[in-house]
């Protein structure tokens, strides 16, 4: 074995045991540095007889190349291993839940109110609001419900002062009158808001929410009321749901209707949740009574219109299967955070 082979063997042995970049650096210097073993062999070349020089030179060069190649390979290997172990040390459990930001929730009534508003906004309605404390005039008289009319019994009303004739509005309909008194037709509004009635049990709240609608134009008929409510019902409850107008009575509309939507559970066949009728009542509606138009100074021969009023709690209960109306004002966070 000559010097060159010994050197390679020695190198291979050393590099085998090197396991970090520093060790490689030391080995590199030991073999390829200025005072390294390969460098020394190179220097030895000039001492050789002429005819031996080319062969020896070739051998040394080959040795140098081999060493460099091995060093390079080993270097890369170590870098790879070092990275790998660094990542391993940085390993995280990606299944651990994130540190979440707490986001708040819309109240279900507020959410449903907005859903309802949005349906009518797409139809170009305006949103109008009125006072929650009203006068008897706006709440009753102007709506064709004079003082001794039995229809006043339909609403058990909270009074602020019977002497002043001030009360908590029992419906959002006064907004109709206020709007018509303020502006000229045509009109297309909805009026959402809180209303109050003297009732408090499993199915009634003393304060609840309504959305009133009023459309006044030329040639407006029951067909327009029906079209609008069909659109509303399909938008809120889903395509395929049907509406039905059942004659009823409200003093400020003539004709008047109760509006029913086909039951979403049985599809209209009749089941427990619709009382085996296939239909669920969702609102009152009708054509604006000519007396109301006269009260606000519109000519009922020129203008006709329809109005409707729905209970938001009722819609929310139907849509989200809420079975106790008292959950709404209770504001239990375990309820609030479901929506």
């Amino acid at each position: 074995m000559d010097e060159i082979e010994r050197t390679l063997e020695e190198f291979e042995h050393e590099i085998e045991n090197a396991d970090n970049l520093e060790a490689i650096k030391v080995i590199r210097v030991k073999y390829l540095g200025k005072k390294g073993k390969v460098t020394a062999l190179m220097r030895h070349l000039k001492d050789l007889p002429k005819e031996e020089k080319p062969i020896f030179g070739q051998k040394v060069n080959k040795l140098k190349n081999s060493i460099e190649e091995i060093l390079e390979k080993k270097h890369e290997e170590i870098i790879f291993k070092e990275k790998e172990s660094k990542f391993e040390k940085e390993r995280l459990d990606v299944t651990l839940p994130g540190a979440r930001k707490t986001l708040g929730h819309r109240h279900l009534i507020s959410r449903v109110l907005q859903e309802i508003e949005d349906v009518f906004l797409t139809l170009g309605y305006e949103i109008v609001e009125g006072p929650e404390i009203e006068t008897e005039y706006y709440n009753f008289d102007a709506l064709n419900t004079p003082e001794w009319h039995p229809a006043r019994d339909l609403h058990d009303t909270f009074y602020i002062s019977t002497k002043d004739g001030t009360l908590l509005r029992s419906h959002t309909s006064p907004v109709q009158v206020r709007t018509m008194k303020k502006s000229k037709p045509p009109i297309k509004i909805i009026a959402p808001g809180k209303v109050y009635r003297k009732d408090y049990d499993v199915t009634h709240l003393p304060m609840f929410h309504q959305v009133e609608g009023l459309v006044v134009g030329k040639g407006i008929s029951v067909a327009h009321l029906k079209g609008t409510l069909d659109y509303f019902v399909r938008s809120i409850f889903g395509p395929g749901r049907k509406t039905r107008l059942v004659p009823s009575f409200f003093p400020f509309t003539e004709p008047s209707f109760e509006v029913y939507v086909s039951c979403g559970i049985c599809g209209g066949k009749g089941c427990k949740s619709c009382g085996f009728t296939g239909w669920l009542e969702i609102m009152g509606a009708g054509m604006v009574d000519p007396n109301v138009f006269e009260e606000v100074g519109y000519d009922p021969e020129e203008w006709t219109g329809f109005a409707f009023g729905m209970g938001v709690e009722r819609i929310a209960m139907l849509k989200y299967n809420v079975d106790d109306i008292r959950l709404f004002p209770r504001n239990d966070v375990r309820f609030l955070e479901q929506f």
Partner: peptide, 13 residues
């Protein structure tokens, strides 16, 4: 809601 507050609707009375 973004700041983490849940909306409530309490009685006006």
């Amino acid at each position: 809601n973004s700041l983490g507050y849940d909306e409530t609707m309490n009685f006006s009375m």
